[in-house]
């Protein structure tokens, strides 16, 4: 069967370190995501939304159910194959940026290309191009800690785009940013989704941020409690 882009069935995650009686972080989650979607995942703290994203991003393994990426069950992937998928298919954007502090913005952006085996000159050229795309070409040789939070997140987005991913996983990307900067970052995501067709999976707990997406999935206690298009409510 020709699989959909992402398909999970009965997905569950029980942390080994959790107390015996705690309910699982993810419990019987079944859903699918297609190429080109812009999905916001919402829910209160501990609802399982971040766990969901980590499992989808192959940063963590589920303890139950199946996860098929383009029809292939990822449970069968070796760690090296999973690393290859993270490198080529996914791009990550974190709440805390997770840039390497001691190297320049361009080198940070080039890092996924190092692991993809690109040559130095090619990496540099593309890193500058990507930084230009997020409006930071002139900061290519600055270290991340000299940049503002919004600028650092743009560098992180440029890094996520380095190997032309098909899915961007963004975990609370605006969590550390003020409203105006958050809007800029979200506009950037919207443009990327519209212009390049990249699928975006966005975890957030803010309605305003989720409103940029086209589809909304709500988690509560490890279950999906809502899944449907984003309804743009009029602000009272």
């Amino acid at each position: 069967m020709a699989g959909r882009f992402i398909e999970v069935e009965g997905l569950g995650k029980q942390y080994e370190s959790a107390a015996p009686d705690t309910p699982p972080a993810l419990d019987a989650v079944t859903l699918a995501i297609d190429q080109g979607e812009f999905v916001a995942v919402m829910g209160p703290s501990g609802s399982g939304k971040s766990t969901f994203m980590n499992v989808i991003g192959l940063l963590d393994a589920p303890t139950a159910g199946a996860y098929r990426l383009e029809g292939q069950d990822v449970a069968g992937l070796t760690t090296d194959e999973a690393a290859h998928v993270r490198n080529r298919v996914f791009g990550f954007v974190f709440q805390g940026f997770n840039l390497l502090k001691r190297i320049s913005a361009a080198e940070n952006v080039a890092l996924p290309m190092v692991y993809a085996g690109l040559g130095g000159a090619e990496r540099r050229r593309r890193a500058i191009e990507l930084l230009d795309q997020v409006g930071l070409a002139k900061y290519a040789d600055s270290q991340p800690n000299r940049l503002s939070g919004g600028q650092q997140q743009r560098v992180a987005i440029a890094r996520a785009l380095a190997n032309r991913p098909r899915l961007i996983l963004a975990d609370e990307p605006t969590g550390n940013l003020d409203t105006a900067t958050s809007d800029e970052i979200m506009t950037l995501f919207t443009q990327l989704n519209r212009d390049t067709g990249v699928t975006i999976l966005l975890v957030t707990h803010e309605n305003d941020i989720a409103n940029y997406a086209k589809r909304l999935i709500r988690f509560k206690d490890g279950h999906v409690v809502h899944d449907g298009p984003v309804v743009h409510e009029a602000h009272a």
């Binding site: 940063l59 090296d80 690393a83 490198n87 990550f92 997770n98 840039l99 390497l100 996924p112 692991y115």
Partner: peptide, 14 residues
């Protein structure tokens, strides 16, 4: 943490 970042963006263990 740096090792985590490197692995998230595609570094293999080796």
């Amino acid at each position: 943490r740096e090792i985590g970042i490197r692995m998230a963006i595609g570094a293999r263990q080796r």
